[in-house]
Design a protein around this nucleic acid. Structure first.
Lengths: 343, 343
DNA sequence: CTGTTAGCGCGTTCAA
DNA sequence: TTGAACGCGCTAACAG
């Protein structure tokens, strides 16, 4: 199977190579390989054998030239770390068989100029659709409506209500976190979150408030907002625990903050989860699985978001309405040892 | 600028649309837009105005059909988390202006079948080259030599010496770690690493040994290999510290292990870095910057790896030899508070 | 059943 | 200086 030459030596084989080897015209070869019915069985077999022998791979770009579709999607992101975009990419790939559609991934790095360049590049390559992934859940400026392909905004919604946006439901996430703590018997719940300039921080905070209201509880101390770091999680939790020694649970705005909270609790000689339960957001594996104990967290279900985005794009290509407005993806509670004692 | 319709309404404009609006032939329009000299200045201006007005974007796939190049690279990975592949992708993008070349990212998820599907998909889209990114530094099976485009293996080398592989120099990384600790005055150095089935673990261990030899030192206790988790870092460090209370430094096989080591040291009432210095590998930001104190680490310079890979691919397209064998990328020491006291 | 013709969007000859 | 004609690789119409 493997040739002896280096990569790049072997010339790309075309349909006409196959046709010549099989002794038929290119049209017949095309029909044979595409499973059209109007081909003699023997001829089809000859063509298929020839294609196999030459390891022929049809040029999808040439096909796309005719069909008006390239089987290609652009994923335009500014998520430097890939934390959000990778699950979304995988969800998009899953929405179809592997290889049926390929994904261009471009990182704009929060730079509008660079984003425009990438957008041009993607359109010039005639992507069938575009998925725009932000690095935070705050609205971002729309790409505009004069784009000739369907566009779906994921994670960060578009600021234009005419666009379709798919985002995690952070309010529900906050509510679910509190409901879980209450179900575990916690009554003295505190809240430490990240940068208050982020919608994610505020939305989760709103959900926390709703959850407390529903349980007839009041937050212990004030919600603490500063930044998304472990250090802040430690410092803020330390203050809260010292001022309110009766705290029996801390809702944290992210898994990193939660890790800081775990440290603060342990520094004070108290035990998680027996004395104080801790819950985070994001369900970011390296964070939640490395901690001691492992961290209960709210998973935003990003794969589902990516899968839904891809499905919407391709449904739109098939003539369906793309739809508009901001659609919320329900989160999922993942329980680990930081809220429920484990063996 | 923005149209009033929804996305997808506006038809894709072609060169002939531009030519018609400008009142010239497509050939002339093509020359005008591509900066060919044989066009009257006034004609060129008319064509450019028409292109602008219609916001014409040339179809690079049609161009590619002629040129034999698509300005497209395939990135075939099995790095589920995106830890390695994202920096490599960014390096590859940087190797050219943003948008000059676009990158298809495919995740094979350690599955050979899926990898073959993606490979076919990429070749059918006529990528100009292929970058294969593994999730560990152990050799992986070659894609073969009958691929019609240049292939570069990154992070995980190919098991075929005829292929070109670009990988981090883990032996050097281990050596540099020890050299740094020795330079900080440490003499009683222990070693905790990850899964001994990983070349990365063993290679770094070899480097640690070389560094110790060069300094005339012996490892305190045995190298501890198990897995890449924080938990293991804690447990192994605890054993070492209890059996060898004079340990003044721990070299850890990853940042996660190092975080576990930090916990173990603190649990014993000892201070990092004053009593015990700790150093990790990977320089993975959320890990190194969240810890207390921040973690000194060895950065494998993945962006440079990605950039180099992209450059090799495109140099090969321009006729240069692709080259072969395994090439090592030198790592970089990043000093933080876990080895040198900080204000 | 098969082959010929046409054309997808573009760049590059070559005549005019 | 411009435009008509050709071909990149492929598929869809038709004619044979």
């Amino acid at each position: 199977m493997a040739g002896t030459g280096r990569n790049g030596d072997t010339k790309v084989v075309t349909l006409s190579d196959v046709a010549r080897l099989a002794g038929v015209s290119v049209a017949t070869a095309s029909k044979a390989l595409n499973g059209r019915s109007q081909v003699a069985a023997r001829t089809r077999a000859r063509v298929e054998a020839a294609a196999e022998q030459l390891s022929f791979v049809p040029n999808r770009m040439a096909q796309g030239l005719l069909a008006g579709r390239t089987g290609t999607v652009g994923l335009l992101t500014s998520d430097l770390q890939g934390r959000f975009v990778i699950p979304i990419l995988m969800g998009a790939e899953d929405a179809f068989g592997a290889g049926r559609v390929s994904v261009f991934l471009c990182d704009a790095r929060e730079d509008t100029i660079r984003e425009q360049h990438h957008l041009q590049a993607l359109l010039s390559r005639r992507v069938d659709g575009l998925i725009v992934v932000g690095s935070r859940t705050d609205p971002r400026s729309t790409l505009g409506h004069d784009i000739p392909v369907p566009v779906v905004y994921v994670y960060a919604p578009s600021d234009d209500a005419g666009d379709l946006s798919l985002v995690p439901d952070n309010v529900a996430a906050g509510r679910i976190a509190v409901e879980h703590l209450v179900a575990c018997g916690r009554r003295k719940i505190a809240h430490v979150s990240g940068d208050p300039g982020y919608a994610a921080a505020l939305d989760r905070g709103v959900g926390v408030g709703e959850g407390l209201d529903a349980a007839g509880l009041k937050l212990v101390g004030d919600s603490m907002y500063a930044d998304w770091s472990e250090r802040w999680g430690r410092d803020a939790s330390a203050v809260l625990l010292d001022r309110h020694p009766d705290i029996d649970a801390i809702v944290c705005g992210s898994d990193q903050i939660a890790r800081g909270a775990l440290d603060a609790v342990r520094d004070r000689g108290r035990v998680v989860p027996d004395d104080v339960a801790v819950i985070g957001f994001d369900n970011w594996e390296p964070m939640v699985e490395g901690s001691r104990p492992e961290l209960t967290s709210i998973d935003p279900n990003l794969e589902l978001l990516g899968r839904a985005a891809a499905q919407r794009v391709f449904a739109a290509l098939d003539g369906d309405e793309l739809g508009d407005g901001v659609h919320l993806q329900a989160p999922r509670l993942v329980i680990r040892g930081s809220t429920v004692p484990r063996s």
